[in-house]
């Protein structure tokens, strides 16, 4: 990933934080990405390209906020692991839930159900 400011060294210790200048650069980048997102929304792209593009841009914003503003880039590994465990669990189980619905055709009322335990 591109680092907006190469000249600042942060990697030595987690108590050191980036300079305000670096934060402003990140914010400018976030603003630019948002602008691009909204712009491609108005292009007549095919759906798959639009969705892929939007997801990639959202991921970039997500990563920059999490890694820079929330300091995951500089902080202890345990925080990253806690957060990632939540995200991965969520992606795992809900992609299964949604694919079950969409594989089953979705939409219509569900059959009458009487299972459980």
């Amino acid at each position: 990933m591109t680092e907006p400011v190469q000249h600042v060294e942060y990697h030595d210790h987690h108590t050191e934080h980036p300079t305000p200048r670096a934060y402003v650069w990140v914010a400018i980048l976030l603003a630019l990405v948002t602008a691009i997102e909204v712009a491609i929304y108005y292009f007549n792209l095919p759906d798959w390209a639009l969705i892929a593009g939007l997801l990639i841009f959202a991921l970039i914003k997500f990563l920059f906020v999490a890694r820079w503003f929330m300091h995951l880039k500089f902080d202890e590994r345990v925080f990253r692991m806690l957060f990632l465990t939540g995200i991965i669990t969520a992606l795992f189980v809900f992609s299964i839930v949604l694919s079950i619905f969409f594989l089953a055709g979705d939409g219509g009322p569900a059959p009458l159900v009487n299972g459980g335990g």
């Binding site: 925080f79 806690l82 669990t89």
Partner: peptide
């Protein structure tokens, strides 16, 4: 961070 992990779900 544990709480934020929970909030993801």
């Amino acid at each position: 961070w544990a709480f934020l992990g929970s909030e993801c779900l």
